[in-house]
């Protein structure tokens, strides 16, 4: 199981890597912006992506659209401070599998990771 964590905050990436580890996912790549994420997705196969929205170079929402345009179907969870309903709907419409609003309790993100992976496995 391989994951990609995308956030311009190194500390937040560390927090999310910790959550993935608690969901038994320890093979994790990191990207600091949307453009780097798209490049890594072109070069690697990931089973799950955790994706921030507000980042330099390329926003997470644009990276999400680019990744889905490649035909990639892995679960992508947006993990962002963008909490307005219109933002959530925009992300889901663009192909986000789930949406977690910062700040979050550790168990919330772990639960979402397990939930989307379980659904992906069942499909």
């Amino acid at each position: 199981m391989k994951a990609l964590v995308v956030d311009d905050s190194a500390v937040m990436r560390k927090v999310l890597i910790g959550a993935l580890s608690r969901a038994n996912i320890t093979d994790v790549d990191q990207a600091a912006d949307g453009a780097e994420a798209v490049q890594k997705v072109q070069e690697n196969d990931y089973d799950i992506i955790l994706l921030d929205w507000n980042m330099p170079n390329m926003l997470g929402i644009d990276a999400l659209k680019a990744i889905r345009a490649m035909g990639k179907t892995m679960p992508i969870i947006m993990v962002t401070t963008e909490a307005e309903k219109s933002r959530v709907l925009e992300a889901l419409k663009a192909g986000a599998t789930n949406y977690v609003i910062k700040p979050f309790e550790p168990n919330t993100i772990i639960g979402k990771i397990q939930e989307v992976l379980s659904k992906a496995k069942a499909q």
């Binding site: 905050s9 190194a10 500390v11 937040m12 909490a83 910062k102 700040p103």
Partner: peptide, 21 residues
Amino acid sequence: DDTVSDAIAEMVNIVAGGAKA
């Protein structure tokens, strides 16, 4: 250090993001 700066930058991002919503 840079880790602390990064973390408090994320905290203000989280506070502002929650407030704007």
